[in-house]
Amino acid sequence: MGLIHIEMFATLDLVGQAPGGPGEDPDGDFPFGGWQAPLLDEVSGAQVSDAYEGTDALLLGRRTYDIFAGYWPDQASDEDQDFANLFNRIPKYVASRGTPELSWAGSSLLGPDLPAAVREIRERHEHVTVVGSLNLVQTLLREKLFDRLDLWVHPIVLGVGKKVFDGGAVPTNITLLEPPVAGKLGTVLLRYGLADGTPATGDMSAPDRGLSR
């Protein structure tokens, strides 16, 4: 069974809406489209590149797919050529409530039973990468259909916008896979893996913790 890795960019208050550009997702009159751009540096850029190593399929929501399909097929700059070669070569699976025309070569529309479709993709590929696609990500989190969550937390607070965990989240244990690494501008990569069970509770004043009064 293959692995599903989620690549997610969020603010300190966990807003994940429209990090890439002003027109990416204006829902709710979101005024901060493109908030990630001023916080990119060499460290976070290298982390993003490394996160795609071994990827043999993309899993995208409709809005992210449209953005990618409008950019990567014609991208020829030296700086982005490795991404363009990868994205244009591998299969793209798209989650959508509608029936869009998918013109980007190698693109397929997932069926209406999204969890079942994702499980089928998992059997077909070794490393499926999910990029952006906030609504899709929330479904994967609820269904626990992921193996790794790469969460880049950026040092800003927006106060408005769609959040990574925005309603319908289920109790889930996750484990930190490696020490957090921060870029020069303060963006921190938190790399988590899905863990077994559900969150436990305890008593911080218990005698064995040395906190009792």
Rank of each mutant, 00 (worst) to 15 (best):
L86P: 04
D80K: 13
G111P: 01
D82R: 11
G183M: 00
A116Q: 10
L109I: 10
V94D: 07
A57L: 12
E101V: 05
G159R: 10
L141T: 01
V43G: 04
L40E: 12
E101A: 07
K162V: 12
R122A: 10
D29K: 05
L151T: 00
T139W: 04
L110M: 06
T172L: 09
A200C: 01
A51W: 02
Q36S: 12
R142D: 09
G132C: 11
F165Q: 06
A76K: 12
S108V: 00
L141R: 00
N135G: 13
M1Y: 07
P22S: 15
L176Y: 01
G186V: 11
R148N: 03
E120H: 15
P199G: 04
G16R: 03
G161A: 12
I174T: 13
Y65N: 03
D27I: 14
V188W: 00
D113C: 07
I4A: 07
R124W: 07
P199K: 07
S96P: 08
S212C: 03
A117D: 10
E178G: 15
Y52R: 01
R148E: 14
L12M: 13
S212A: 12
P91Y: 06
G186E: 05
D78R: 13
G21K: 09
V181Y: 00
G70W: 07
A182Q: 01
I174V: 15
A18W: 14
F30H: 11
K184D: 08
G21F: 13
L176R: 08
G70N: 08
S103E: 14
V137W: 12
F32K: 02
L151W: 00
P115R: 06
P38E: 02
L60K: 01
G168V: 04
R191S: 12
A18P: 14
Q36F: 09
L60F: 02
K184V: 06
H5V: 06
Y93C: 03
P38I: 01
W35N: 02
P38F: 03
Q47L: 11
V160Y: 08
T172E: 10
F146C: 02
G159N: 07
P19Y: 11
L86G: 05
G23Y: 06
G61N: 05
P112S: 13
L177I: 10
D27E: 14
L189V: 03
Y52E: 05
P180K: 09
D150W: 09
V94S: 06
R124A: 14
F146A: 02
T187L: 00
E53Y: 11
S212Q: 09
M8F: 05
S103Q: 12
A169S: 14
G132Q: 11
P112G: 04
G16F: 04
F68E: 08
P100A: 02
G186T: 06
D66Q: 15
L145C: 12
P31V: 10
D41I: 00
F146T: 02
G159V: 10
A206S: 14
L140W: 09
P73N: 03
W152E: 04
V131G: 00
A10G: 05
V94R: 09
D56R: 08
L177Q: 14
W35L: 02
P22F: 14
L176K: 03
P31K: 10
A195Y: 01
L140D: 08
P199S: 07
W72Q: 07
E24C: 11
I174A: 12
E123S: 07
I90K: 12
Q36Y: 09
P112E: 11
V15Q: 08
P19W: 11
F146P: 08
S133I: 15
I156C: 03
M8R: 04
P38H: 00
P22Y: 15
